[in-house]
Each structure stands twice: as C-alpha cells, then as structure tokens.
Amino acid sequence: MDKVNHQLNKAELRRILLKTRQSMPVREWREKSDHLCFYLQNSTSFTQAKTILAYFSFRQEPDLSPLFTNTKYRWGFPRCVDKSIHWHIWTPNDSIQSGAYGIAEPHPDAPILDAAEVDLILVPSVACDYQGYRLGYGGGYYDRLLSLPQWQTKPTIGIVFEFAYLSEIPIEPWDKPLKAVSTETGLTHKG
C-alpha cells in the first residue's frame, strides 16, 4: 500500500484487503486458517464458553469449520433478515442454504438462539486494528447487532489474517472496539 492506512477511506481499504485475501493460494489459506483455529481454541475466552456464535467462511475469510465438530460447544450461525441478523443453532449434521449475498446460512426453521445464551461472538472482519476496531463489509449488520443493549457486554473476537491486522483503520464515532483479535500468529486481548 503506497499510502498510510488512515489516509485510505473505508471503501478503498476494504477493496485492497479483500483482493489480497482472495488472491491467497488455497494451501496458504488453509494453513493460516488452521493456525488461527489453534490459537482460538486454546484461548481462555473460547475454552470457558458454552455457546459460540461463528460464521461460514466466504470469499477466503479465515475458515473456522475445523472447530465446529467440537460437540463441547453449542454453535450459532447468522442469517441475514432485512437489516438485522438472526442467530440459529447449527450442528454439522444440519443443512445450510445460500442466503443474502450468496453466504451460507442455517435453514430458517433451525432453532433460534437468544442473546442471553451466548458466551462468545467470533466476528468476521475485513480488517481489525491494534485498538480492536473492526472494518466490516459495509452492510452494518454487526455494528447494529453489537450496539444493542443485550449484545454490548458479550465477549467478541475479531477474526482476520495477519496482513489485515493493522495499526489503525478509519473509524466512525459509533464504532465500538471488539474485546480481542485473533490471527494465525496469535490472539490479542484489548483493554
């Protein structure tokens, strides 16, 4: 990047980082995803959780699927409905379908998860910075969710590859930092 990160606007930074991620060779993507999963599953936030919200990898997002077979945890996955996210319980035997934006999601009939049951949220991100701020995909789904009173206190871990873990990203007044960030080189807690 020929400019300093804070000089790039969100759309430009998002475009560059998504292009970088999608140009990663599949073997490297798999290896980095596996390393990220290793650090994640050995973190206290993870091992102390019972119900974890995750996501199905899309366009070479870090792939967390090796974790989903661990039956010690109850897994929740998002389904985009209008401008909000509905969370459904999902097990590896359950069906998935293509939803908004072509992203895999649980079947609408799958059991709904209530915020009170959730112990940890693994947040898909285009980038995160050292302060825990997240650059999302521009739809505002997670921003809206995490600003709701019942979700504000939930532990959140931003999931990114190391190249997208930046010293600074452009932020808006309403942006809230995540509690931790996980990459293929480790997990860092914020504040």
Rank of each mutant, 00 (worst) to 15 (best):
M1E: 12
N5A: 13
N5E: 11
H6I: 11
L8R: 15
A11P: 00
E12V: 08
Q22A: 10
P25L: 00
R27D: 12
K32M: 08
L40D: 15
Q41S: 09
Q41P: 02
N42Y: 08
N42R: 14
S43D: 13
Q48K: 14
A49C: 09
I52K: 05
A54T: 15
Q60E: 11
E61M: 04
P62Y: 05
D63C: 00
D63A: 02
D63G: 06
S65D: 03
T69S: 12
R74V: 01
R79G: 00
C80R: 08
I85W: 04
I85E: 08
I85G: 14
W87P: 03
W87M: 06
I96T: 14
I103L: 09
H107N: 12
H107W: 06
A110D: 12
A110V: 00
A110R: 03
I112Y: 12
L113R: 08
L113W: 04
A116F: 09
A116T: 03
D119V: 03
V123E: 07
S125I: 01
S125F: 02
V126K: 03
A127D: 12
C128E: 06
D129F: 05
G136L: 02
G136F: 05
G139A: 09
G139K: 07
D143K: 08
L145A: 13
L146Q: 13
L148E: 14
W151F: 14
Q152Y: 07
K154W: 00
P155N: 12
F161S: 10
E162D: 14
S167T: 13
E168H: 11
E172T: 05
P173N: 04
S182F: 01
T185A: 06
T188S: 15
